[in-house]
Design a protein around this nucleic acid. Structure first.
Length: 877
RNA sequence: GGGCGUUUAGCUCAGCGGUAGAGCGCUUCCCUUACAAGGAAGAGGUCGGAGGUUCGAAUCCUCCAGCGCCCACCA
């Protein structure tokens, strides 16, 4: 008996999503345990920053991961998706400082302890919000394992790594030129600096020679730093200056005597070929200074104002000082030639956009070169594979010329550097636990005030979250993780460093695959940003259209490695697809007569064989796409299968069978149920909520989330059925088109005969009822087409429509003319190909054969169409 | 200054060596008992340009152009 399914006509995600997610969590489907017979599959979530809430980029990243993990879970893997969040040092601190500023406070007024309390407070709120948002998206992460980069375990891993690297000589403290942000008041690593083109001026300045014999001209874009010059350099092979090397120049405005020296680092082609050397304010000058033992004079304060060392210019910021020094040089008569406008790249802080100041400073560094070698080798050997492969090039390029990594930051929010300084003897102690006193002199110790670069802890994420440095069962089972899913924008920041650290400390790569995705953009390819006003908020989309609709939209656009354009109307389109799935399911469930969806009927008609074969193809293609991280392709394949094949054709055909109420009805129902069941499984990773809602109603099972992934579908492949059904489709479409062309009412039941060669005739005779119903016919039977409007469907198949009064001869002629033109073009193309010299000899036989068949079809069709035209034209007055 | 990506239907994108595809938009018809968030039938591309390889190129190679991105201590 038919079970009455009372489903609303319109799918309502709100009524489904929260309920389903709660149930998944309650039943613990997302928990993964190490050991056992299930093979491991693991993904460690790139931790969102606790600066605020989730944006569309996070949604994309997490949807991709969720799709991958859900499929593996269904395939029987012990599938672990380990979630967490990142403390995001500078960024989070900046957010909280901004909040303080609104209260008229600074972090210094609050003090370190109170300030950190506030940041922790902020973190709790942001983290809760982020987790909530991830859940709304349907993320099937194992929340029992949720981690935070500053939690106890991760912090322990950070300390351990720091201490070990220090002991191995791979971490050191030293005075170097670093990138300094005068606004954030901290050092930055090289990759935290963004280069932007800036309009500057190239100024030529004359430095008088000390012996009064003339002058040497230098070119610079930063005249203000001349206050800190301690030398002048030229290229050793530059003949213009050969006589000056070894002499001395006098620094204008300051009066300091500067040695003129030769150094390979100077480019004789640039400017005048002579440069001022400012070791404290320029990285190249620093190196030249080192090589020649020049003193270093620092003329800036941390916020980039001229310090006391800058004499008359003290107190000015760098830009004021630039103008002032320029004027002073001008007044002193030191300028030569013209001041040239000059476009050049200047470093900016990637967090706040302030121009970075190269600054002499004592910081902690990681010597990355030895670590990098192993990482490059691992990728080269394929132990880590990038998808798409070309992104490995970005990795290699960056790893090549790596300089040491500055890891200390002059902020408070982060992992405090585990180094202590003796106030008595100056000893530096690096230790896992705070030492009671100086091991050398027993003096009092003071801990380093600085914290570590956020990316330092991020680099350890794949193993710190699994319990390292303990040898935990999680680490043994789930490491290396299976795949890292992330955007191409952090390959250098993060991916490469994880590989280095994983190899060094765990002895194996952190992940076998890196699935790279692009950045989410708006519909015209523009970056989403608040100032553009083109931001689409994921939560808003979820509320308006449902999580599945958003997920499907993102997946469908996410071609591997390419940017992902997004527009609200596309989410709407996906919502429509969800509604389609819902209503198809509603139909299937309403018509069910107690059958199970577990298997297809043993006895199958043409349509059954066709849809099962199409299912098998869709399954295979989706699988292949999923395996190569091409979610866009998987989504497209499944969308097409479900909508254009299952709904548009099979469902309509099944109605015909069900109307008969005999054995055909039962096998149609069984097929509908089975294919729906399989399709829902294939779709579940992409659209988990609706798939689960329907699947549980369909099967009575607990959840599709842990149901088995479809396998063995290839047994249903049936090329003969596909070909025969195509004949049916073409026939139906030809009649519908005829009806449309002649404006025949949809309600008019036509009488159609067909004449076909044997194979097609058999197929159509069997499918007569199907065709009648789909094309709205009163009768569809084999027989003569004489005296009827003749439709050419394909070679050897012609239909005759009884037209009675309503055939418009003029229109029919026009229709046939179009057909004639198309066939002519086709015949021409194919004949041209066959006539190409060498084609017959060199093309593969099956291609030649196919081409000949096409020509035969086209010619036959053309002959027939022309004949019909002649007949009709005879009818015209 | 290097490098990468991209250029295919009005829009956003697939296809990457053998008959040009999808979604959205557009046109016409239809509220047919799963769905009007729908159904049916259509219109619409010399696949950025120029060479080359090949029997055959949107697809491979070279060059050029436009757009976008990444890297870079020529001050």
């Amino acid at each position: 008996m038919a079970r009455r399914e009372d489903l609303p006509k319109v799918y309502d995600p709100r009524a489904v999503e929260a309920k389903r997610y709660a149930r998944w969590e309650e039943l613990g489907y997302f928990r993964a345990e190490p050991g056992g017979s299930r093979p491991p599959f693991s993904i460690v979530m790139p931790p969102p920053n606790v600066t605020g809430s989730l944006h569309m980029g996070h949604a994309l990243d997490n949807v991709i991961q969720d799709v991958l993990i859900r499929r593996r879970r269904m395939q029987g893997y012990a599938a672990l998706w380990l979630p967490g969040t990142d403390h995001a040092g500078i960024a989070t601190q900046a957010v909280v400082e901004r909040e303080l500023a609104r209260e008229g406070l600074t972090r210094h007024e609050l003090g370190r302890e109170l300030f950190l309390e506030r940041v922790w407070n902020w973190k709790e709120r942001a983290q809760a919000r982020i987790v909530e948002q991830l859940k709304r998206l349907g993320s099937s992460a194992d929340w029992s394992r949720e981690r935070f980069t500053l939690d106890e375990g991760c912090s322990r891993a950070v300390t351990e790594v720091f201490v070990r690297l220090y002991e191995e000589g791979l971490i050191y403290r030293g005075e170097r030129i670093i990138n300094w942000c005068p606004r954030c008041l901290t050092a930055l690593s090289d990759i935290e600096v963004e280069h932007r083109e800036v309009e500057g001026e190239l100024v030529t300045v004359a430095y008088p020679l000390a012996d009064g014999s003339g002058e040497i001209r230098i070119a610079t874009t930063r005249v203000e730093t001349m206050l800190a010059d301690t030398g002048v350099a030229v290229h050793p092979a530059d003949p213009r200056y050969a006589g000056l090397v070894g002499k001395e120049a006098v620094l204008p405005l300051v009066g300091r005597v500067l040695p003129i020296l030769a150094d390979e680092g100077v480019d004789p082609e640039f400017g005048t070929g002579a440069v001022k050397v400012t070791p404290a304010h320029d990285p190249l000058d620093f190196e030249i200074g080192q090589r020649h033992g020049l003193p270093k004079v620092d003329i800036f304060t941390p916020d980039a104002r001229v310090s006391d060392a800058g004499g008359a210019f003290r107190g000015m910021d760098r830009y004021e000082a630039r103008r002032a020094v320029f004027r002073a040089l001008e007044e002193g008569g030191y300028l030569r030639g013209v001041v040239r406008p000059y476009l050049h790249a200047v470093g900016h802080c990637y967090r706040c956009g302030t121009e970075v100041e190269p600054r002499l400073s004592t910081q902690w560094f990681v010597r990355v070169e030895p670590l990098a070698r192993a990482a490059v080798e691992a990728v080269r050997e394929g132990r880590v594979r990038f998808f798409p492969e070309r992104w490995s090039k970005v990795f290699f390029d960056w790893m090549e010329g790596l300089k040491d990594w500055c890891i200390s930051r002059q902020i408070w929010w982060g992992h405090r550097i585990p180094a202590w300084y003796c106030e008595g003897c100056g000893e530096v102690v690096v230790a896992r636990e705070e030492p009671a006193s100086c091991p050398r002199c027993s003096g009092a110790l003071r801990q380093d005030e600085d914290v570590l670069d956020t990316w330092f802890s991020s680099a350890l994420w794949p193993f710190s979250t699994l319990g390292w440095p303990e040898a935990t069962p999680d680490l043994a089972f789930f490491y290396p993780t299976s795949v890292l899913v992330t955007g191409y924008d952090i390959i250098t920041f993060w991916v490469s460093r994880m590989i280095m650290m994983g190899l060094h400390f765990v002895g194996d790569v952190p992940f076998r695959h890196v699935a790279i995705h692009g950045l989410v953009r708006d519909w015209r390819g523009k970056k989403m940003s608040k100032s553009f006003g083109n931001v689409i908020d994921p939560l808003e989309m979820v509320e308006r259209y449902g999580a599945d609709a958003l997920r499907f939209t993102l997946a469908r656009s996410a071609t591997p490695g390419q940017d992902v354009p997004l527009a609200e109307e596309w989410v709407e389109g996906s919502r429509n697809f969800m509604n389609k799935i819902w209503n198809a399911a509603r139909f299937v469930l309403m018509n069910r007569a107690g059958e199970s969806s577990a298997e297809p009927p043993g006895e199958r008609g043409l349509a059954e064989r066709w849809i099962l074969s199409r299912l098998a193809r869709a399954g295979a293609r989706a699988d292949e796409a999923y395996e190569s991280y091409d979610l866009a392709e998987a989504a497209r394949v499944l969308h097409h299968f479900f909508w254009s094949e299952y709904c548009d054709w099979y469902l309509e055909v099944a109605k015909v069978a069900m109307a008969r109420g005999d054995g055909e009805a039962a096998r149609a129902r069984k097929t509908l149920l089975f294919v729906l069941d399989q399709a829902l499984r294939l779709l579940h990773p992409l659209v988990p909520f609706i798939a689960d809602e329907i699947w549980t109603r369909l099967t009575g099972g607990e959840t599709v989330a842990t149901a088995s992934w479809p396998t063995g579908l290839e047994a249903f492949l049936d090329p003969v059925a596909e070909d025969e059904f195509e004949t049916v489709q073409k026939t139906v479409v030809a009649i519908r088109k005829f009806r449309q062309d002649h404006g025949i009412a949809p309600t008019a039941r036509l009488d159609v005969t067909f004449r076909a060669e044997e194979a097609s005739e058999r197929v159509l005779a069997e499918a007569a009822e199907m065709v009648s119903r789909l094309a709205g016919l009163a009768r569809f039977s084999p027989g003569s087409t004489e005296g009827r409007a003749k439709l050419h469907v394909r070679a050897g198949l012609e239909l005759g429509v009884a037209v009675e009064g309503f055939l418009d001869v003029g229109r029919e002629i026009a229709r046939l003319r179009r057909e004639e033109e198309e066939l002519e073009a086709e015949a021409y193309r194919v004949r041209a190909r066959l006539g190409q010299p060498g084609f017959l000899a060199k093309a593969p036989p099956e291609v030649v054969e196919g081409t000949r068949r096409r020509l035969a079809e086209a010619e036959e069709g053309l002959a027939r169409v022309r004949q019909l035209l002649a007949e009709l034209e005879g009818l015209q007055p």
